[in-house]
């Protein structure tokens, strides 16, 4: 296909290069070209948060970032380090059902706790309102966030 570009970026602390088509999202590049399918694609429109990653320290939807825009930047995905306590809390709290939302929620939760280490209920709800979950009704996700906060 036309318009191929070479990008080079840091992913989960490692220097990575990829040959992408200029129209491809960062999400597509991560999932299909870089062997990191942990970030999920559930809408490709910035509505569900399943593709949440950390780009230069900011929580973003990888489906809304072009792969080419990430050239030279630093990306942390759910496969990366630093999420263990959140992951553990999700499993223990029963916050995982089908799990398709989970990688995005893990990343979003970690981002929330970094900014607000001891969030109250309203803060949790607001921070996670961009992450859709169709299975759990969110209650156990909130439990997981509180559990992760307690343990951090």
């Amino acid at each position: 296909m036309h318009g191929r570009v070479k990008i080079s970026l840091t992913i989960n602390g490692e220097r990575r290069e990829a040959d992408v088509w200029e129209g491809e999202s960062l999400l597509f590049a991560l999932r299909e070209r870089l062997g990191l399918p942990g970030s999920k694609n559930a809408c490709e429109q910035g509505e569900c948060g399943s593709c949440s990653v950390i780009l230069d320290g900011e929580l973003v939807c990888a489906c809304l970032v072009l792969a080419a825009q990430a050239d030279g930047h630093e990306v942390v995905t759910v496969e990366g380090p630093g999420f263990e306590h959140v992951q553990q809390a999700f499993v223990e709290a029963g916050a995982v059902q089908c799990g398709f939302c989970t990688p995005g929620l893990v990343v979003a939760t970690a981002a929330l706790l970094k900014q607000t280490p001891d969030p109250n209920e309203d803060e949790i709800r607001e921070a996670l309102s961009g992450n859709l979950c169709r299975c759990t009704g969110y209650a156990k996700i909130f439990d997981a966030v509180r559990l992760a906060a307690e343990r951090a």
Binding site: E79, F90, V96, G99, P103
Partner: peptide, 30 residues
């Protein structure tokens, strides 16, 4: 909190597929 080891009927048991689903390792059809 559920038990760490997988348990018997009637116990709140952690999902067997829980950890891989949180780390991104679990392979969905997509």
């Amino acid at each position: 909190s559920p038990k760490t080891v997988l348990g018997w009927i009637g116990e709140s048991v952690r999902r067997a597929d829980g950890t891989p689903k949180t780390t991104g390792e679990f392979a969905y059809a997509s």
